[in-house]
């Protein structure tokens, strides 16, 4: 028995290269160990694998912690960039978690979503401007104030250039031309001005007295600009024309309320001449030039209807009417 075993072992030793340890062996122990040998019939031997040790990645501490107080921020954050918590030395918080508390800047997606202007700090802008200054020419004399500019250059042309990285550098939006001009600089008389405003429709802004013509129908910027200037010229001359049909203007077509043309004057004249009956000719010929009460009333009605009613215009109207209708209470 012992001879057979020795032979077997010798055979295996010959067959296997040195250093190789089979996982499954007939017998795991050597006969010389002196231990009791176990016959493993299922030929299984459980060898537990050693646990892998977790090696923590070594990272540098956030850069923000080691930043000097007097550093040049424009070098840290030179251009537009998504928010980075380690670079921005600010204790920012944004958004909220499940307990409605706003989390800090590390690992905070909310802070990365919103656009930031950290590259547009006042020193950065200043630096930018000073770099550009060498390409600028001197400001022309005589154009010191905005009023001067408006007087010498009443027309403003606005175009936009687009610059982005794409296969083509052309942007269709760059063809659009906006021409802005103050209507009061156009030297129009009362009729022409009214006609111009009616012709341009909503291109006229009453508050700023601005006429704004936007042209985008031609393919190139040059064509659009020419077209805009052509339209402006045509409008100007058309406004100065007086057509025959313009004589048919009715009361409803008036741009403003004019007291003399309206029933209000008739009512007033009827009141002042009571009890005689007044005809339309009387109303027309009646003058209120030296009638203070009448003038006040006219002013109040005109303001009420032109400016719309509010507490102020209604009160003014009320005072004027009281003076007309109840002069005795007015004195009291």
């Amino acid at each position: 028995m012992s001879a057979l075993q020795t032979t077997l072992r010798r055979t295996t030793a010959v067959l296997m290269p040195i250093g190789y340890q089979p996982s499954r062996v007939w017998c795991s122990t050597r006969a010389t160990d002196g231990k009791f040998r176990v016959l493993d019939l299922k030929k299984k031997a459980f060898v537990p694998q050693a646990k892998k040790k977790y090696n923590k990645t070594i990272t540098l501490p956030p850069r923000a912690l080691s930043m000097p107080v007097d550093q040049d921020w424009t070098n840290v954050w030179p251009g537009p960039r998504t928010f980075h918590p380690a670079t921005v030395p600010l204790a920012l918080r944004q958004g909220y978690d499940q307990k409605r508390a706003s989390p800090g800047k590390y690992g905070n997606a909310e802070l990365m979503k919103i656009p930031n202007f950290l590259h547009l700090t006042p020193p950065a802008v200043k630096k930018h401007c000073s770099a550009l200054k060498q390409f600028c020419t001197e400001w022309p004399k005589g154009l010191e104030t905005d009023e001067d500019c408006d007087r010498h250059f009443p027309m403003t042309t606005i175009t936009t250039d687009y610059c982005h990285s794409s296969p083509t550098i052309k942007d269709p939006k760059s063809r659009i031309v906006t021409i802005k001009i103050k209507l009061s600089t156009l030297n129009l008389d009362k009729h022409a001005r009214d006609k111009m405003i009616r012709l341009v429709g909503d291109r006229y802004d009453e508050e700023s007295d601005m006429l704004i013509i936007v042209t985008d129908r031609c393919p190139t910027r040059k064509q659009n600009y020419d077209y805009g200037v052509y339209v402006l010229t045509a409008l100007y001359h058309e406004s100065n024309n007086f057509e025959e049909w313009e004589r048919q203007k009715q009361e409803a077509d008036m741009e403003h309320y004019i007291w003399e043309n309206n029933p209000s004057k008739k009512a007033y004249v009827t009141l002042t001449r009571w009890p005689e009956k007044v005809s339309d000719d009387d109303v027309k010929s009646h003058s209120i030039d030296d009638d203070m009460v009448g003038q006040k009333y006219k002013e109040a009605v005109t303001e009420l209807l032109n400016n719309g009613e509010d507490t102020y215009t209604l009160n003014k109207y009320r005072e004027a009417v009281l003076a007309v209708l109840l002069p005795q209470t007015e004195q009291a």
């Binding site: 029933p263 009613e309 509010d310 209604l314 009320r318 009417v321 009281l322 109840l326």
Partner: peptide, 22 residues
């Protein structure tokens, strides 16, 4: 609730001059 909004221009011309009392 202001009167001319409610009666319109036509109404105003019909009753003008009147004393508005708030």
């Amino acid at each position: 609730h202001l009167p001319i909004y409610l009666i319109g221009r036509q109404g105003f011309e019909h009753i003008d001059p009147f004393i508005p009392v708030m």
